[in-house]
Write a protein that binds this DNA or RNA. Sequence first.
DNA 1: GTTTAGCATTATGTATAACATAATGAGACT
DNA 2: AGTCTCATTATGTTATACATAATGCTAAAC
Lengths: 234, 234
Amino acid sequence: MTPNATDSLIQLDTSSLVDKVEANLVKLLVERKLKVGDIIPTELDLSRSLGVSRTVVREALLRLRMMGLIDTKKKKGSVITSPDIFGIMSKSMNPHILDQDTLREIFELRLVLEIGMADLLFQRITPKDIEELKEIVKSEPDTAKDHIFHIDHEIIFHGKLYEIAGNETLKRFQKMLLPIFDYVHNSGLLKKPAQIQKFVSHKGLIDILENGSPELFRNGMRNHLENHFLRIFG
Amino acid sequence: MTPNATDSLIQLDTSSLVDKVEANLVKLLVERKLKVGDIIPTELDLSRSLGVSRTVVREALLRLRMMGLIDTKKKKGSVITSPDIFGIMSKSMNPHILDQDTLREIFELRLVLEIGMADLLFQRITPKDIEELKEIVKSEPDTAKDHIFHIDHEIIFHGKLYEIAGNETLKRFQKMLLPIFDYVHNSGLLKKPAQIQKFVSHKGLIDILENGSPELFRNGMRNHLENHFLRIFG
DNA sequence: GTTTAGCATTATGTATAACATAATGAGACT
DNA sequence: AGTCTCATTATGTTATACATAATGCTAAAC
């Protein structure tokens, strides 16, 4: 690179006041090691001690609230909460707003999760879970016969799997992804039409969970999802 | 259930004005099918046509901005943008703020992703990618010898894999998860100490990518990550 | 004629003041 | 002790004014 006239210019601070206050507040939370349930000063107090208007403080607090860092109640002020990282995200998870590429990618993401969580499943599944899964499939129609793709049963069955996996974050993530998945599934977004053949059934997956291994389950689930993969890869 | 006095009560609307305005704006975006780049009315216009104060409109717009739905520039007003669903999330992805359970779950989540993305990898990998992967491992120290866990090399290698997977959403997700993963890895959060043994090496994974199958890769990757799984399951 | 400097315009950013509203808790009353 | 009432308090909302920065027009300069 050749030196030029801009080399010695420093990056100047274009951040707004609200940005600074927001950063300040987050820093405050981290440094003071404030726990969940602790309350933070009132808007007016913050406004005074930071030397900015209440308007600015409010906007900064609003951001923290959207991040799920605080929960603000009337009169009581704002209290620290454990951030719900997906709660925020789910607000912008509107299929009508996301662009097509992102939609397709989210479709893929769900498939990735289902296959990858085998080890969590096997580590945490209980005999009671197996029984519940069997109950779920018992009420399913015979898909091998009528060849209809039942998204409802898919959701119930797979939702239970996420529950068994014992990872709340994963479960919430899934819960957010499913509507998108359904939307993409039903929209004309994927070129290939949906197949109606199921290679490994829900019953088959339960069998593996009961007697198999994570390794077997991954392959089983991959096979179970074959229809969806075909629509992506063709 | 026995009928009681609350049965006939309707759920009353506790949402704030800002909530309503926000919902209104989102609905506007969806119904009008506004594309990326379109501009929306000014704060004052919205304020007038919605019959609320500019403050309320501002707070609602701020929320949309945080969701990544709009980008607001001075003078020009707000323009629609394609929401970056993970960009928003990364703001609250501060290891110091997330509680321990969530941190551990995110740790798990990354492992799930790595194993589950095998099919995407095989579908989209090119000979050039293979070469680049080989270049990456070439500069790695011999982990079999000095038995040291090199998180830096892990990041480079696995980051490349996500790139190959050809899913931007997944890649961004991963990019957000990695610092958390690293943090959890180094913190005393996981009871079990880190092993320093690697069962399937990066070289081994490349071999599979070159000559194997998604099935083989899943198992290989699972084995490669054995150290981390051991720390979770023990 | 093109460029550039300057200025008016405009929409967002910030500040201030006032009032509305709802939750809280203290004190009075039974 | 219980509960009813009311003052208090902190957030929710409105209104207004000014600051600031981006935009585009206009006119001077070449």
